[in-house]
């Protein structure tokens, strides 16, 4: 027993190092978990409020540009306003709209921390669980796809940016309707990779790549980017396609979190189908 105590005393430095390092690795591994992240759940509110204050301060610098963009978007949305539509029938006809049902809701949020230079980039926004944000919700900007919510604390959420080497988004080419998946190589912040497009498809530079709507994170047709170049891989059955990303991640300031109202229903029917298999 005395020997043991002496041994511990002798190697206490090494022992403390190993114990603390194990704890750090526990954080590292559980934090690398793509989905829920306990660490940001715990610390998100503290660092979030500090970073938000800083963000509020620097926000003024880019205010003009942001205003222009918002005004542009407002103008675009105005065309869907009631007063922009022409009445086709007289007042007395009541029309029950059964053709359309709301599926997606959008929640605006401000980006308060963001990076593009890492291999795994995350974005911090100022809306959280209180605002109904949950992991796996999609995030878009007025230009296109931004990422997917990884975890949220009460008032803040962390988003896995498209610029993350493990991010994957289902996509399709608008011009020919072929489906593939979008990923990032980790090198160039303006270039994404489009995978799984078979090499018998005819492609052209400038084709539009958009979300497929296969997952409930994004509605169908949100822009992701434009085909910049493609390469026919010998001995392979798929193209290597570079896509120029439409979102400018360096200037990201306002984003919209997508809420799919039919997500539960969708999951339920998928599970039932699998059970009956």
């Amino acid at each position: 027993m005395r020997n043991l105590v002496q041994l511990i005393l002798k190697y206490h430095f090494l022992i403390i190092f190993v114990v603390l390092q194990l704890f750090a690795f526990y954080l590292l591994v559980s934090g690398n978990n793509y989905q829920n992240n306990k660490f940001t759940n715990l610390t998100g509110d503290v660092s979030g409020s500090v970073l938000e204050r800083y963000h509020n301060f620097t926000n003024y610098i880019n205010l003009n540009e942001k205003n222009d963009k918002l005004a542009e978007e407002n103008a675009f949305l105005k065309q869907y306003e009631k007063y922009s539509l022409k009445k086709l029938f007289s007042d007395k006809v009541k029309i029950e709209d059964t053709l359309y049902q709301q599926q997606y809701l959008y929640m605006s949020a401000e980006v308060i921390d963001n990076s593009v230079s890492n291999k795994k980039n995350y974005i911090l926004i100022n809306k959280g669980r209180i605002n109904g944000i949950m992991p796996e919700m999609g995030v878009i900007s007025s230009d296109g796809v931004v990422g997917i919510v990884k975890s949220s604390s009460d008032n803040f959420s962390v988003i896995v940016s498209l610029l993350h080497i493990e991010s994957k988004v289902s996509a399709f080419i608008e011009e020919n309707n072929y489906f593939g998946s979008i990923s990032w190589s980790g090198d160039d912040e303006q270039t994404l990779l489009l995978n799984d497009i078979p090499n018998y498809v005819s492609l052209k530079k400038g084709y539009h790549v958009k979300t497929s709507g296969y997952s409930s994170a994004f509605p169908k047709g949100v822009p992701i980017g434009i085909i910049k170049s493609f390469e026919w891989v010998e001995n392979g059955s798929f193209y290597n396609i570079d896509v120029e990303v439409s979102t400018d991640f360096r200037k990201l300031s306002h984003v919209y979190v997508v809420k799919d109202l039919m997500k539960m229903e969708r999951q339920k029917i998928m599970e039932e189908a699998k059970l009956n298999d």
Partner: peptide, 17 residues
């Protein structure tokens, strides 16, 4: 540092080393 960069364990581990 990890709290402010949303990178749990990364800086902690490196600082210990």
């Amino acid at each position: 540092m990890d709290t402010f960069t949303q990178t749990p364990g990364m800086n902690t581990s490196a600082c210990l080393v």
